[in-house]
Nucleic acid binder design. Structure first.
Length: 171
DNA sequence: TCAGTGATTAGG
DNA sequence: CTAATCACTGAG
């Protein structure tokens, strides 16, 4: 029987290159506070890894915006891009080690901006802790899987090396 | 193919 | 204060 159990801190404390692919097929759960829960299976992620990664916001240093990425893994990093779209990221790794996994798609909602629109994610979720939050968390479906990889999308500015890292993971 | 949109950042 | 940039999307 599938475990349907909330993932604990240890899951998120590992390197983003381990966590990002393992998020595939896990279930993102949203509770509305009135007893209703919506469940979304994660189908596409990307890894952003440390100050050296020119595509990672932490490559520009520690700022108010990037502060949450310096926390222990398990927090959410939510920011607005192009003035329109909220991006949902899961902070990974130990503290002082800025990394995050971008949730690009869940089942039925393809594209990071569409995911947050469908789920009602906005800046109020920035910093939320998936390990203790009453309104959002991730459950282990107990299903193992294979996956594909590719270059990350939308980071042409990062230069040839970082642009070509195969850090996008999808089913 | 390309405009929209506004938070964030660097710089004067 | 100004100006540039942007981990995207939908319309045409």
């Amino acid at each position: 029987m599938a475990s349907n159990k909330r993932l604990g801190r240890d899951f998120y404390l590992r390197d983003v290159l381990e966590v990002a692919p393992e998020l595939l097929l896990k279930t993102l759960v949203m509770a509305d506070g009135k007893g209703a829960m919506a469940r979304y299976v994660i189908t596409e992620t990307e890894a952003y890894r440390g100050p050296e990664d020119k595509a990672c916001h932490a490559s520009k240093g520690r700022t108010n915006r990037t502060e949450v990425m310096y926390h222990d893994g398990g927090r959410l990093y939510v920011y607005l891009v192009y003035g329109i779209h909220w991006m949902l990221n899961i902070v990974t790794g130990p503290s002082e080690n800025p990394q995050a996994a971008l949730i690009r798609s869940v089942k039925d909602f393809t594209g990071p901006g569409r995911v947050t629109r469908a789920l009602g994610i906005d800046r109020s979720f920035n910093g939320e802790d998936l390990v203790s939050s009453a309104r959002i968390w991730i459950e282990d479906s107990g299903i193992a899987t294979g996956y594909k990889t590719s270059e990350r999308i939308g980071i042409d500015y990062a230069g040839e090396y970082w642009k070509t890292r195969p850090w996008r993971y999808y089913l």
